[in-house]
Amino acid sequence: MAGAQNDGLSLAERRKQLAAKRAQEEAAANPQGASASGVNVTPEMPLHSLVHNPRNARRNMEGVEGLAETYETTGVLQPCLVVPVETFRAAFPECAEDLPAEGHVVIGGNRRLAAAHQAGLATLPVHVSTNLKTREDILVAAATENIAREELKPFEELATIEELKTELGTYDAVAKKLGKTGGWVSQRRRLHHLQPELRQALETRTPGMTIELARDLGKIKDRDQQLKAWRTAQHAADRAANPATAQQPKTKKAGKVPAQGGPGDGPGTPLEDTAVKARREACLLTVATGAGDLARLSIIAAQVPVDPDEALALAGQWLTEAAVGSSALHLATLSGEEGTDRQRQGALALALAHCELHMTRTSGTESTHARAYADWLETHTDYQPTDAEPAPTA
């Protein structure tokens, strides 16, 4: 086992080797080509007999040129998943005119097929599925392939979810089929609520606009409030990119923001914990947009023991970075801002700071509060407690 871990190969490369080994073993055990899993192992298939999936959610396949260059030197390492044309035509009769009389439709690996054409290859390794027969089977297989490889753009991903919902009936069923949580699906559905200006900003990758921010903005149903939150987030991004030109508001000296490590870390310890980084980035985005269930968060925050000065300092830092200004927390000005968005952002920042400091100090070992806080973040932001390794994209 030790040798396998120290062979110099990445996890993705070891997976490819294991997949290739299994394919060879299946081919040897089943000389007629049928595997126990319902997949026929075909070493190579002529490119002219393979066609793109006409229902593929990916409209523009990026990175094909680079992949083609790789294929010219190393060949194609991962087979495509295909089904016979007649099987696809039976599942999608509306696509019959777009398909040839015979051949195979690529369900998983359309980018590989495009790159193989560009590289001038004559054949492509494939797995011919005998299990994918129905419309639902094929849609789920294609969606799982694209989403697992993170190959879909945000609105393509949303369209895939909606198409699956039409077939499966509920969003819970979609999440289950894709091996995702209900929250994962809900986060992506928020893009439905984006105003046209924000949709364009996301599609054109406008500076400051990220998929995480777009999903947070999608929680705001009111058009004016959504656009205002976007302008606030843009301002925050500009300040972060050009700190020298940002005008810092004159406020009273805040307490020192505690180090973001676990218990026992000394003052000023550099942040090394990626989980803490992810949580605090999610907190900053929440403060910038002013979105989230403040009542639920306040109940959690009221039951965690932390130093109030430290919480005030951390909340002030987030408010400053979000271009709201830490003066939103000054007691003397509260009565003059009653009910304002600025006051709501201040309350969010302070409640989040209480929860975050408690989580950091206890390293999440205090299960009740930690779980409630993590649940809030997962519900209202794109924070994920663990990040799975992305699937190989070759």
Rank of each mutant, 00 (worst) to 15 (best):
A237P: 02
Q234D: 09
E272Q: 13
D222K: 10
A254F: 01
D238G: 11
Q225A: 14
D216K: 04
Q226T: 12
Q200K: 13
V257Q: 08
L227E: 14
K228D: 14
L194P: 13
V185P: 01
R231V: 08
W230G: 06
G255C: 04
E203V: 11
G262K: 06
L227D: 12
R199V: 15
V257K: 05
A233C: 10
R205W: 00
R190T: 14
K180R: 15
L202H: 07
H235K: 12
D222V: 10
P249K: 03
R223A: 13
D265V: 10
T210R: 02
P243T: 03
S186A: 15
K228V: 10
T245I: 01
H193V: 08
R189F: 02
L194H: 11
G264H: 06
Q234V: 09
G268Q: 01
T274D: 13
V257W: 07
K180P: 00
A275D: 10
V257Y: 04
E212N: 15
T274Q: 13
Q200F: 05
D238C: 05
H192M: 01
P196I: 15
R188W: 11
R188S: 08
H193M: 08
K180T: 00
Q225G: 12
A254H: 05
I211D: 15
L217R: 10
K177F: 00
Q248F: 01
A275R: 14
K177C: 03
A275I: 07
R188L: 09
P207D: 07
W184C: 00
Q195P: 03
T206F: 03
A229W: 10
A236R: 04
R239M: 07
R189V: 06
L213F: 11
W230A: 15
I211G: 07
K250G: 08
L178N: 07
D222E: 13
T269H: 00
K176S: 11
M209W: 09
Q234G: 04
L217T: 12
I220R: 11
G255Q: 06
H193P: 00
Q247F: 00
A244E: 10
T204C: 11
W184G: 00
G208L: 06
P270C: 08
E212F: 03
A236S: 13
A229K: 11
R223F: 03
L227Y: 11
T206L: 10
A201W: 07
G261N: 12
P243R: 04
Q226L: 11
A233Q: 07
P263G: 02
R190P: 03
P243N: 02
